[in-house]
Design a protein around this nucleic acid. Sequence first.
DNA 1: GCCCACCGCGCG
DNA 2: AAAGCGCGCGGTGGGC
Length: 475
Amino acid sequence: MNVLPYTPESYQLMHDGAITLARVESNGIRIDTEYLRKTARRLTRRIDHLSQKIQESEVVQTWKTKFKGRFNLNSLDQLGAVLFEEMGFESDQRTATGKHKTDEDSLSRINHPFIQDYLKIKTLNKTLNTYVLGIRREVVNGLIHPFFNLHLVTTFRSSSDSPNFQNIPVRDPIIGKLIRQAFIPRSGHRLVEADFSGIEVSVAACYHKDPRMMEYLEDKTKDMHRDMAMQCYMLPLEELTPTKGDKEDTKRCKNIRYCGKNAFVFPEFYGSYYPDRARELWNYISSMDLKKRDGTSLLVHLREQGIRELGDLDPTQKPRRGTMELHIQQVEKDFWEKRFPIYDAWKKKWVKAYIQDGFMRMLTGFICQGYLKRNEIINYAVQGSAFHCLLWSLIRLQRKLDKHRMKALIIGQIHDSIVSDVPDEELNDFLELSREVMVDDLKDAWDWIITPINIEAEVTPVDGNWFQKAEMTIG
DNA sequence: GCCCACCGCGCG
DNA sequence: AAAGCGCGCGGTGGGC
């Protein structure tokens, strides 16, 4: 049986959302085109220089001999053939269609000086082509006008294109700085980014209502990501509690916590399982240089705890003793059976109901149907409703800005955050309005939100740029 | 010259 | 029993 994919209230949200986002698109985002021009030149020079350098490498020599006139440094197919068929490097990693994988993870296992330079060139090319040139191409009268679509995504989230404003680099500080310096406020303004903290975790909790998760969300002294990082890396709490005023140590703790969050907690929520978790947690130790306060690598620390190697990661074999694989298998079991059994039970119940009914209804009234995999059934409801919290807030914020005849402009949206271009003199009012809408009004409007909602705001200096955003506490 | 599948990678 | 969710974009390589 087919069901209308929306209820009247969810239809209204899409309708109001489309109208408000049209205004956001029309406002546009100011771009420093002169900076982009210079950056393009600099990047091009660096790429040329590095490309020159690797010409001497035996890999390129072999490559040219094999492919002659067809030689193309950007061809990953050719690179795979050179490395794995010609030069005899081992790889058991294959793509869905059976080709050798040539992503960063696979390539970095190859011990050859060429690889580092090649990966560097790849990153610089991506930065230049997708971001510097891609953004500059879209500038009209000093502004870009990214589209924010509401009709494309299966989960009823939004997407953005031309250019995509939802994937601007930020995780790599060097690349993030390079690109974000091009995003600037209008004269006398600041850029303000207001985002929900952990909205997907909160929304998920509104579905499953696991009491242990509720404790984590309600008690600000508790920290799930930190706790899981402790358990995964077998560290005492003390090792994850930064020494006050010590910036270096704060960063060390932050990095370990980051790995707990992004290599264990979120992937587990999305449906990953222990072999992949063990591998990523293990790789992060070297790539992020994770260490204890006294400077010993977590690899050494784990060895002292009896974990000497990663393991075979073969799902048909039982993990061996003394491996990270076995340890993380146990952490995973504890995670779902002991820590969050109610969450676990909800997942099973939710999937069973979907298979029985043929559709699911989100807390925001949107309806998903069709042939979905287990992980999709679990994740769609959470991802969609989390975004609807943002969309509802964006609509409401625009109404309040209009009502108060403010000059602040909403210029973009990134799934759980709102980006605005705000005159300096309106800053305090704007931040207060944002808090009012995203925290108070939202909870008043939707009584299914049974968890605390928190937001953070990051603000740039007047006439600064997006890279200079810094956190501002607004409750 | 255009279209498409695939791969890889940027973000939440 | 299965085993990471959602996007957009750039490049290659093949087909028309």
